[in-house]
């Protein structure tokens, strides 16, 4: 088992005819993901290395039974593409695009609340990888193997770093989920922790947060009340000065709010062990599961 994407995933890529979109769509297909369609308005009828391109999500879904979307279009058009995918009946939408205006994300979020069966991952995220099954996004799959650790993170490369530290200790992953670095993410830590809690393959979860907002604090409360499996935490940005956006649009300490210290303390107060370095995260995981990663 795994969460969100697997062998059965039927992927439709929005922006498949773009340079980045086609590169990663093909990369995902080589990994084994069923890439069944692409959408680029005005390019319906063409194909990208055999993947049929449609003008609209509705026609793509009707023709190919796509159930998952990957959004790769530029920021000015990305929110509209997400809404189009949801409108066409796509159930899982993974939005890679970085730089979507926050007010666009607010409207998307408000609309998706009205259609609770649709799940949005991202935007501004590396996607979802279920090792050995499917890769939807830009996570470099070569570093990860199947296993029992579920990872959820606000960051991309930091996730690879942590995943690599885990791999060196023999741990594989059920799924790796990047929820993205924007102020208004489609899915929260809580949403993904809930999926891992239900996933029989996942025995331990790693949650990698960063400064800004209070998603980690809310997750800490949720873990205490609803999560039975062990969770290991990591928070980036202890040295970040207040008022400065640290790369991710959502990574900003506002006044005294959103500090790494407060987040780590909130998690630890609920019994979640927090690694102070990515290496320590792997050490704690090994301590909990046994050093051989079995």
């Amino acid at each position: 088992m795994s969460v969100l994407v697997d062998e059965g995933t039927r992927l439709c890529v929005s922006g498949i005819t773009g340079r980045e979109g086609s590169f990663h769509a093909m990369n995902n297909r080589r990994y084994g993901t069923q890439v069944v369609a692409g959408v680029t308005p005005g390019k319906g009828g063409q194909d990208v290395e055999g993947v049929p391109v449609f003008d609209t999500f509705r026609s793509a879904v009707a023709e190919t039974d796509a159930d998952t979307a990957m959004i790769f279009v530029p920021p000015p058009f990305a929110a509209d593409s997400i809404l189009e995918a949801a409108d066409a009946g796509i159930q899982t939408i993974v939005a890679i695009t970085e730089g979507i205006p926050a007010h666009d994300e607010l409207r998307v979020s408000a609309q998706l609340e009205r259609t609770p069966s649709v799940r949005l991952i991202g935007p501004n995220c590396p996607g979802v990888l279920s090792p050995g099954k499917a890769n939807v996004g830009i996570i470099p799959a070569a570093f990860f193997s199947p296993g029992n650790v579920g990872v959820v993170s606000r960051s991309g490369t930091l996730t690879y770093q942590i995943g690599n530290e885990l791999a060196q200790r023999g741990f594989g992953n059920s799924s790796i989920v990047g929820i993205g670095g924007d102020p208004v993410p489609g899915s929260s830590f809580i949403d993904i922790l809930a999926l891992f809690e239900q996933d029989p393959e996942t025995e331990l979860m790693v949650m990698s947060g960063e400064i800004g907002g209070e998603a980690e604090e809310l997750a800490a409360d949720y873990i205490a009340a609803h999560v039975s499996k062990p969770v290991v935490g990591y928070i980036a940005g202890f040295t970040a000065p207040p008022g400065k956006t640290m790369g991710h649009a959502g990574a900003i300490v506002s006044g005294s709010k959103g500090t790494a210290q407060a987040k780590a303390e909130a998690l630890e107060a609920h019994g979640v062990r927090v690694g102070r370095t990515p290496t320590q995260v792997a050490e704690i995981a090994a301590d909990i599961l046994g050093a051989d990663g079995a």
């Binding site: 606000r154 960051s155 930091l158 970040a240 640290m246 790369g247 991710h248």
Partner: peptide, 10 residues
């Protein structure tokens, strides 16, 4: 990557 850089600073 923003997360990795923040982590590096730490």
């Amino acid at each position: 990557g923003a997360g990795l850089v923040m982590s590096t600073l730490d």
